[in-house]
């Protein structure tokens, strides 16, 4: 749905741009293409790594790793799995839901969801290409620590 919206926006913009100034539109297309091909080699590496990661950390494996433990060890385990994996939300949220239904703790699921979205170990090489090593390390480690704070607050609000 949102992808479709993005396409409509891009194509609409392209048409208006073309109607207003052909030369500038050509320049825009060239710039977009160049930016894309410049980063494609790094993208290809990350996507191939994710392919391997998904194979060995299937939703089934993740469920076993995240669901079993409780307490702080459980949070630690789910935070690590959340940081390393990169699964789309439409897989992650129902997975967290089904684990909750099967008795997993709310804080464990919260830290899993939060690290999953904020911390990207596999995408770190790509982030580093754009932002440099220091930013990548800082943003990911701060987000990691912050995910625990989020989880504790969610535990207090939802668990109460």
């Amino acid at each position: 749905m949102f992808t479709l919206l993005l396409y409509l926006l891009a194509l609409g913009g392209l048409l208006i741009s073309f109607w207003k100034d052909r030369h500038k539109t050509r320049l825009a297309l060239m710039k977009g293409w160049k930016a894309f091909t410049n980063i494609l080699p790094d993208f290809a590496v990350v996507l191939a790594l994710i392919g391997i990661m998904l194979t060995y950390l299937s939703p089934h494996t993740i469920a076993a790793l995240v669901g079993k433990n409780s307490g702080f060890p459980g949070m630690l385990a789910s935070s690590i799995v959340g940081s390393v994996t990169l699964i789309p939300g439409f897989v992650a949220f129902p997975l967290a839901k089904s684990l909750l239904d099967r008795g997993a703790g709310i804080m464990q699921m919260a830290v899993f969801v939060s690290t999953l979205m904020m911390v990207g170990v596999v995408t770190a090489p790509l982030e580093s290409r754009y932002f440099g090593k220091k930013e990548t390390i800082l943003r990911n480690s701060l987000s990691y620590v912050f995910s625990f704070i989020v989880a504790i607050i969610i535990g207090m609000v939802v668990g109460a």
Binding site: A10, L27, A28, W33, A35, G51, L54
Partner: peptide, 22 residues
């Protein structure tokens, strides 16, 4: 999975880079 990742990327990135160029 790798092919799926590429398919996802190729469906999302073209409009982003097009908009960025514009």
């Amino acid at each position: 999975y790798t092919a799926g990742n590429f398919a996802e990327m190729l469906s999302i990135l073209p409009p982003i880079f097009l908009l960025l160029g514009l």
